[in-house]
């Protein structure tokens, strides 16, 4: 059949290859909007800040604020808890990095670097304050406060234990709990975000 002869694809034919390549590029470009639409939208990405009044948080108490859909633990630690945290050698830590969004990415996980004192203003007086995203770095559950073997936080889902500075000490979680960007705008007000 004569038809069949001309239809036989000639793989060396530049025209066919070029057409196929152009079509493939177009198809890939057309797919992108369908994938990218699943990314967070502009409203979600818009920098959201919250102000939290901490005047009612006495020593040894905590409150939980909601920021970007996640809980943020704000705790004024007792002197004993701070001492416990300071006593830990960096070498003992499972994750030696501070995970503090206000510091450099490789800052060591000392107690000062974990606490609000690291954030600059009025350093010494703020070391009692701990502000961190209350999400277990294992698989996203919310740990229970003041419990577990290190008297810090304990995640009931899979048994990760954090110390009084929110650092991972035992269990499957890989990292210390994250510190969000925040600052004290006054002595009793924290702006997160």
């Amino acid at each position: 059949m004569s038809v069949h002869d001309t239809a036989e694809p000639n793989r060396r034919d530049f025209l066919y290859i070029a057409t196929g390549a152009v079509g493939a590029v177009g198809a890939i470009a057309a797919v992108w909007p369908f994938i990218d639409q699943m990314n967070p939208d502009a409203a979600t990405l818009a920098l959201a800040e919250i102000d939290v009044d901490v005047s009612q948080v006495a020593e040894g108490q905590s409150i939980t604020a909601k920021w970007r859909g996640k809980p943020v633990f704000i705790r004024q630690r007792t002197a004993k808890e701070v001492e416990e945290a300071k006593a830990v050698e960096l070498g003992e830590l499972k994750d030696p990095i501070a995970r503090n969004a206000n510091l450099a990415a490789d800052a060591p996980a000392t107690d000062v670097n974990r606490s609000a004192a690291a954030e600059g203003t009025d350093a010494a007086a703020k070391e009692q304050w701990l502000v961190m995203i209350g999400v277990c770095t294992h698989l996203g559950c919310i740990p229970l406060g003041q419990s577990g073997p290190y008297n810090g936080w304990f995640c009931p889902c899979h048994g990760s234990a954090y110390d009084t500075a929110g650092r991972i000490r035992q269990g499957p979680a890989p990292e210390n709990m994250a510190i969000p960007p925040f600052k004290f705008t006054t002595d009793t007000n924290i702006r997160i975000g």
Partner: peptide, 16 residues
């Protein structure tokens, strides 16, 4: 792309 396809179509149908 339409132009390329048109030329390819001409090749395929040539002789038919």
């Amino acid at each position: 792309f339409a132009g390329l396809l048109y030329v390819v179509k001409g090749r395929v149908w040539a002789g038919t």
